[in-house]
Amino acid sequence: MLTKRIIPCLDIKDGRTVKGVNFVDLRDAGDPIELAQRYAKEGADELVFLDISATEQKRKTLAELVFKVAEKLNIPFTVGGGISSVEDVDILLKNGADKVSINSSAVKNPDLINELVAKFGSQCIVVAIDAKQIKDNWIVHLVGGKVPTKLDLFDWAKEVEKRGAGEILFTSMDNDGTKDGFANEALDRLSSELNIPIIASGGAGKIADFTDTFKEGKSDAALAASVFHFKEIEIKDLKTALKSEGIPVRI
């Protein structure tokens, strides 16, 4: 049986791991390679490296860091942040990334998804979507949640799937940093309307939040940062608790 994935996210800025509260006010939480290895050892199923400064600063790649991580890490990892071309992806994959995630560049140029899928395959293309609830609608946002678009989350997610993306990483801007749980209603709707894996992001604060997102949100994977970086939740404890709730996990 396929297990539910626990994915620590390492937000990277200037080669260091950071985690912002609602994406502002960054805190330093360590060396990415050291953290990556620690997470692999503790039972993380996968890692995500996001260069959160990339979109604004137009940073092209994290190739050097990716190479060093790939050298040490024996579990899969995804790299995102500022990826806007076939060439960007090519460099990251060649340096050892297993998957890449694209966000703003896909919204600006949706054909990029098709181009990447045609060249590299669906299995390594993750589309990250940041969205915020405005009145009754979930609206896709760009630049770390600062810039609203006209896109509806569910319409965009369906288009992303149609264009061939292998997975969707959905971050609720309303939940991110609150430690009050994931956006399970929206996640559940995504899972029922789409047939590709959905990674839940934004809002993890306690173990029950993970249980809820797998049970109520039907999420295939759950991503979190600070609760892991600051050892508020140990992955081992988390997985033991999930297992006791009947959720399939790799232990």
Binding site: M1, L2, K4, Q123, N195, I196, P197, D220
Partner: peptide
């Protein structure tokens, strides 16, 4: 099932 299968299976 969701396609692709992504993750850890036995």
């Amino acid at each position: 099932v969701k396609v692709p299968q992504v993750g850890w299976n036995k």
